[in-house]
Design a protein around this nucleic acid. Structure first.
Lengths: 301, 301
DNA sequence: AGAGGTTACGGGCAGCGTAAGGATC
DNA sequence: GATCCTTACGCTGCCCGTAACCTCT
């Protein structure tokens, strides 16, 4: 009698233009998808999708149905969000996270979600932005906190509060108080994120812009390692101040008032636009709130 | 995962304030209804209905859900109407019909529905208006073509074209040509609908209003019998002209140009307001069209 | 005690997954 | 011949109906 499940299957087949990919997305098999579409076509008395060899494309009737299906799925999601007790919200979310986020507000995020929605579980991958982007596109990730928008049709990017960059140096380096010029900075090695990141690029560019020879730059995908290297005096860390908090507090690092500034790091919470998934957009919303309150209250003292 | 069926069950329990009556309405059993409501309450993590002895009443969460459920069910109905091929529309409709309708446009209605929606079947009861009204209220009828609006909350009344009354007399009565006064009319017996109908009442009233003694009035619930009596010269039939067509055409009856006029008969197509039932409101729409075109084209020649 | 809802339990069937079978490039 | 979808088929699990039980008035 036309159930939600069928509309959901139809929606994904229409969106992904493929029975097989829809099956993957829905964690089911191609025959199951075939069967549901066949049943829908029986129900509505006509073809909804034209399967001509390679491409699967909507018929006029299919386009008409898609409009209705999207609306119904969206309203069901709204209904669940409106009526369901938070504790009953459940699901496994495959989450991709940049390490900066891991080191800042991710614990607060996980904690808040676990408290509000105990039935939600996570499969967390810490990774670099390009790989997360691919993961989202391939539907191996449901949600990612990554740098910059994904900017693909069919995806939603929620801007998160920016992280300003800071330079952290061990007191052992003996840098003078007060504003430090680019030249003075460049006498030391720098330690920062991997070469594949925009931050690395921006850092190089900033020195070039100042007409200063670019210093040695060590990189690591592990923030803990970057910080450790800075503490050990191997170089000056270029990171959001937030992630250096404990070391700053303990006096193992101090912030440098550098002349040069770098653009802040912009993260987004990104996920596929899916009218049938209440959970992911809800989590994105929570992430925005958590990150915002982190940015607001968790300033350095 | 919250399916339409559950929302439908919930809607009817909420509307009828009873698990048992909802079960009846949905052609299922009370335990089945109980189970679905229990599952919904599990799903949404809280009570939706308060069962306190006699009365079943919505909780705040239940009221919230009801709004969403009604909207979703309505949109599903719209979707089915928009997308479904007419031939796939199916169902059994328990239809109550006034005899006047049987004698006029019901065949055209049935014919048109059968042609457009071959999978729809009817259970037709020809009956008088008060009994049909009760039938609708008791949910023993899904749709009725009866006199005057039902006028109950939760019901929809679609006005149908009016039937003007006419007086039909056998030529054997020897009534003069031209306008006939009430007195002249009252010299003959009249034959019309049963005493329980408003028509009978209006007929009596009309004579009283003219200050004329009320003639003998024969009544019958069978229009065929009324006509037969008029043809046989037993009296003058008081009926919509439409139902006397064949006899008028054959010259067995002729229309009297009577001085007195009677209010026309007003029919409505009435049914329960149900957001989950596309079929009945669709049929009501067809009835309006058929009746209208009957009134428009099927005039006497 | 009776009306109305819940709990218990057995059976039927829808819908899934596996596996084999077309069709189209 | 490779890629996609369909068809065939056995099986599981959901949901329904029957029946017994509980709980209010």
């Amino acid at each position: 009698m036309v159930e939600f499940r069928s509309l959901e299957v139809f929606y994904w087949v229409a969106s992904l233009r493929s029975f097989g990919r829809a099956a993957e997305r829905l964690y089911t098999t191609q025959p199951a998808v075939s069967q549901r579409i066949a049943a829908l076509e029986e129900e509505f008395g006509g073809r909804l999708l034209e399967r001509s060899g390679r491409s699967t494309v909507l018929t006029p009737k299919g386009r008409l149905l898609l409009e209705h299906a999207e609306r119904l799925l969206r309203l069901r999601t709204e209904m669940i969000q409106a009526v369901a007790a938070p504790a009953t919200v459940s699901g496994l979310v495959r989450l991709g996270v940049a390490e900066t986020v891991v080191q800042t507000w991710l614990p607060a995020f996980i904690e808040r979600v676990s408290r509000a929605h105990p039935a939600v579980t996570f499969d967390i991958e810490v990774d670099v932005t390009p790989r997360m982007r691919t993961g989202l596109l391939r539907q191996e990730l449901d949600l990612a906190f990554l740098m910059g928008p994904v900017g693909e049709p069919g995806f939603v990017d929620h801007a998160l509060p920016v992280f300003p960059h800071a330079f952290g140096a061990s007191p052992a380096l003996g840098l003078p108080e007060g504003r430090i010029t680019a030249e003075a900075l460049a006498r030391h090695a720098l330690v920062t994120y991997p070469r594949s990141t925009v931050i690395y690029q921006q850092l190089q560019q900033a020195f070039r812009d100042q007409g200063v020879i670019v210093p040695r730059i060590h990189v690591s995908s592990s923030i803990a390692t970057i910080i450790r290297m800075a503490v050990d005096g191997i170089g000056i860390s270029v990171l959001p101040a937030d992630v250096m908090r404990p070391e700053l507090a303990r006096g193992e690092l101090r912030l440098i008032d550098a002349e040069m500034t770098l653009p802040p790091i912009r993260f987004t919470a990104s996920h596929r636009m899916a009218p049938d998934d209440a959970l992911v957009s809800m989590l994105a919303q929570i992430a925005i709130e958590v990150a915002r309150s982190h940015a607001g209250t968790d300033k350095l003292g």
